[in-house]
Design a protein around this nucleic acid. Sequence first.
DNA 1: ATTTAGTTTAACCATATGGTTAGCAAATAT
DNA 2: ATATTTGCTAACCATATGGTTAAACTAAAT
Lengths: 204, 204
Amino acid sequence: MNKEKDSNTEEQILDAAKNVFQTKGMDGARMQEIADLAGINKAMLHYYYRSKQLLFEAVFKNAFSLLAPQLNKILNDDSSIEDKVKNFTSNYISFIIKHPYLPNFIIQELNRNPDFIIKIQENSSLLNIEKFKQQVELEVSKGILKPTKGDQLFINILALNIFPFVAKPLVKAFVKIDDEGFKQLMEQRKTDVSEFIINSIKQH
Amino acid sequence: MNKEKDSNTEEQILDAAKNVFQTKGMDGARMQEIADLAGINKAMLHYYYRSKQLLFEAVFKNAFSLLAPQLNKILNDDSSIEDKVKNFTSNYISFIIKHPYLPNFIIQELNRNPDFIIKIQENSSLLNIEKFKQQVELEVSKGILKPTKGDQLFINILALNIFPFVAKPLVKAFVKIDDEGFKQLMEQRKTDVSEFIINSIKQH
DNA sequence: ATTTAGTTTAACCATATGGTTAGCAAATAT
DNA sequence: ATATTTGCTAACCATATGGTTAAACTAAAT
């Protein structure tokens, strides 16, 4: 057996599957299209991944494992809330510009099958907002922040950063811009969003 | 012919189609499932709506026409930005609690087929952010608001209001709540979100 | 009573789709 | 040298799916 070629085929399949699943979703994806994109026989998909469901799960886990460390930064990091907001906003927007289909894919598929998140919750110590909430409480009591609820703040941070990418067609239509204009708008948000949040919660 | 019954069947189909399309999307929806839910023969779907695509479009247009007036309020209304933010936030969250699948459906399908929004743009005078932007500029120059970009503010308002519903499974997992807890969290946001926005942009 | 038009159903059709199988060719092990 | 395992392909299969059709039914119009 040729190890080089083995892993290569398997990777090519996963690559093609990422492409197709992330743009068309589980329901819209076709095994044949994945095979064509990978340049191999359809039977190979089943040879390496058994079923559409399992191939999809491989893609989904892969996608989530890319996103997880991004979210982890804001939850389990020791910098101040202000620094977290600034860093997360800038980093996350850069990250999504590199992986534009990720947030939409994850949100769409979680809505299609909410049980998915249970599996994720079991496997990863992620998705724990407690430390963040305590930190907000502490900074509120110290007078650094105005009275603020940790969970709502967290939702707001996610919303302001993720939403524009998820609703990209809507945003493009409202603001009347093309892809290039959208990219510029998102670049601007790297600083605008953190300012918007800090302005709102910081005690002055 | 029985007009009562006519429109009834047609409506029953549209109702069932709304249900199925809005929860499963175009790709995940099955004509047979829609027919079963409507309690009629599958051929009736084609009798009244010709094809899956046209039935879907009827559902989509219907959904968008529900959402449009909501967005219109914030774009073409004469109250102050502060009042707009307060009213929109409260009204929109109430609205979505009544139609929980709407935002997700629209966003998902616009991403699947971005051309859809072109048709919408042609037909409706909606989706024009100009008045809102001018109003922001005016209030900034009057010193009511801090320096603020109208388009970014509009995106932020949409993001903070819409995102939690679109990402509901994610939010539930992070905050560790069930459906009841989610509903309470959203009720709280009716005031929290507008405060969050006003705090950020109002000159003081 | 009969015609006419709209409505509904069961059966059917062509195609798409996820998945399987038999066999081949090359590499590896014996 | 031979047997065995592995990677791969072409052909195939069963079922699902969107869509069609011909005939039956209903109710109003003549």
